[in-house]
């Protein structure tokens, strides 16, 4: 039990609780339910991929899990409490980063923000905090950029910094919205390695992704299309029929080697749009 070693005394009762447990959960906004009747459990040390088009409910579910919007109906608990009540145990990487482009701030200070949940308003950074920050920056390959201004970085480097921030939280639940968007190949490799490590450490991971190849690696996959299309293991869920239901059209399914390789056509505004996806390790 790795969790035992790092759980502070007193939080032991929460040890075996699911990271996320939703039952008959309706998400959306009052009067505008986006997805209804979600039942899912994400245990510690397990991963869940949310797959669907824009507007399918992925981001709404993510925002519900981290407590930014309340559930419309049903129930959801994060470590046995309503979402948003366990800031030290939950890390989040947003899809876009509001103020990051103009803020006069160094990379190091961005990653240090991860520790604020633990430190509160005035707590001093301990050597453990500094170690975690350094480790997270090394894991994402941005350790030598510590003193660089965030706004001087490229989009890919900036995304690495945001992922390092999530790592430095040392959370028990990590929620990622399109984490590989803008990452270069090197960044993607480091991301996969670092977050596999987090999973091994005992953290649960929930990721919204368009990448069906990546989703196939997850313990559970939830297909969303303003309703629950399917929930289950990647092998059972990521079938051409269900992807058809989720995305609109699947052109072909070539099943190269042992990896799933799908080409999915999404019905966009400007006619069908082809998105090719493949496994990251392919």
């Amino acid at each position: 039990m790795r969790l035992d070693e790092r759980s502070p005394a007193g939080s032991g009762s929460a040890r075996d609780e699911a990271a996320v447990a939703a039952s008959r959960l309706d998400i959306g906004h009052p009067g505008d339910v986006v997805v209804s009747g979600i039942d899912l459990v994400v245990p510690p040390r397990s991963s869940l991929a949310l797959v669907g088009t824009n507007g399918s409910g992925k981001s709404t579910l993510i925002r519900t899990v981290i407590g930014l919007i309340p559930p419309v109906g049903g129930s959801i608990e994060v470590f046995g409490a309503p979402p948003g009540r366990r800031p030290t145990r939950v890390a989040y990487v947003a899809q876009s980063h509001a103020g990051a482009h103009v803020l006069p701030i160094r990379v190091l200070d961005v990653v240090r923000m991860a520790r604020f949940a633990h430190l509160g308003l005035l707590g001093r950074m301990s050597s453990t905090d500094h170690d975690l920050v350094r480790w997270a920056m090394e894991a994402m390959g941005v350790a030598d950029l510590g003193r660089a201004a965030l706004r001087s970085l490229s989009g890919g480097q900036r995304q690495r910094v945001h992922l390092a921030q999530a790592l430095a939280r040392r959370a028990d639940l990590i929620v990622l919205d399109e984490p590989t968007a803008g990452l270069d190949a090197g960044g993607r490799e480091r991301y996969l390695e670092a977050f596999a490590g987090e999973l091994h450490r005992g953290a649960a991971i929930v990721t919204a992704t368009h990448d069906i190849g990546e989703a196939a690696e997850y313990d559970q996959v939830l297909l969303l299309a303003r309703r629950v299309v399917a929930l289950g293991g990647g092998d059972a869920v990521l079938t051409p029929d269900r992807l058809l239901e989720t995305f609109g059209v699947v052109i072909h399914d070539t099943h190269e080697e042992h990896a799933g390789r799908f080409t999915v056509a999404e019905r966009g505004r400007g006619g069908p749009q082809t998105i090719e996806t493949r496994r990251p390790d392919g």
């Binding site: 989040y92 980063h97 990051a100 961005v110 949940a117």
Partner: peptide, 13 residues
């Protein structure tokens, strides 16, 4: 600082 960086990150923290 969190608010200037990203208000959602402030909430989550």
């Amino acid at each position: 600082l969190l608010l200037s960086f990203d208000p959602e990150q402030a909430d989550v923290s």
